[in-house]
């Protein structure tokens, strides 16, 4: 498997991982379906969660994509991005508290909540080293290009990364939500909800370390 395929796979796998984590919202889709007693409500809620998550990814990736145009500093940018991701992970290890402003978001505003919860937990940051790696691989393939072409290419990759990740996230979260609503019942919530706080924080650190290692 070549590097690009491996990185795209990482984008997809991180989406599955985010989706399966109840903290990213799939139980809210089950709740919506139970409230309205209609399966369609489950898909609507998932769509709202997906839109919020997608925007959170794009919001983090695009600025890094723009910065990456500074061709002379690409290595530094990748090192800095890795450091930022590690710092976020370390922060989450030390500060295990849930940001309180999230509990002020109304239950009816699922997309906003999904955006904020993904941002607050560094879900987008987890993708940054992978994304920068993809930009680099594509660049090596394409050779030298004009800045304009570079930019549109980086933006396109950012959108594709965010989209693929979100599709995987909604796919896995949606599958669990559907199974719980349809077959497993609410009790699965208690059986299948693991405290991933530390695992999540260490995932960020891991991704950051790999990103730095690849840039060196």
């Amino acid at each position: 498997m070549n590097t690009a395929a491996g990185l795209w796979l990482a984008v997809f796998a991180s989406g599955l991982y985010h989706g399966l984590n109840p903290g990213m919202g799939w139980p809210l889709a089950v709740s919506a379906a139970l409230f309205e007693q209609r399966q369609s409500a489950l898909w609507r809620a998932l769509a709202a969660l997906g839109v919020g998550h997608l925007l959170a990814m794009i919001g983090i990736l695009l600025p890094f994509g723009a910065m990456y145009l500074l061709v002379d500093y690409q290595r530094e940018i990748r090192l800095a991005a890795g450091a930022v991701v590690i710092a976020m992970g370390a922060y989450l290890v030390i500060n295990r508290r849930h940001p309180r402003f999230l509990s002020r978001v109304k239950p009816s505003r699922l997309a906003l909540w999904s955006f904020l919860v993904a941002t607050a937990h560094g879900a987008g940051l987890m993708l940054v080293p992978i994304y920068l790696g993809l930009c680099r691989v594509e660049e090596l393939d394409a050779g030298h290009q004009a800045a304009y072409e570079l930019m549109s290419r980086n933006i396109l990759i950012a959108l594709l990364v965010a989209l693929l990740h979100t599709v995987a996230m909604i796919g896995s979260g949606g599958a669990v939500a559907w199974a719980v609503h349809r077959y497993l019942g609410l009790r699965f919530l208690k059986q299948g909800w693991f405290n991933l706080d530390l695992v999540w924080a260490f995932s960020l650190i891991l991704v950051g370390v790999v990103g730095i290692w690849a840039a060196l």
């Binding site: 903290g23 509990s103 919860v117 706080d197």
Partner: peptide
């Protein structure tokens, strides 16, 4: 606490 909205499931 069992709502993801609370952030305090544990």
């Amino acid at each position: 606490s069992l709502s993801p909205l609370s952030g305090h499931a544990f």
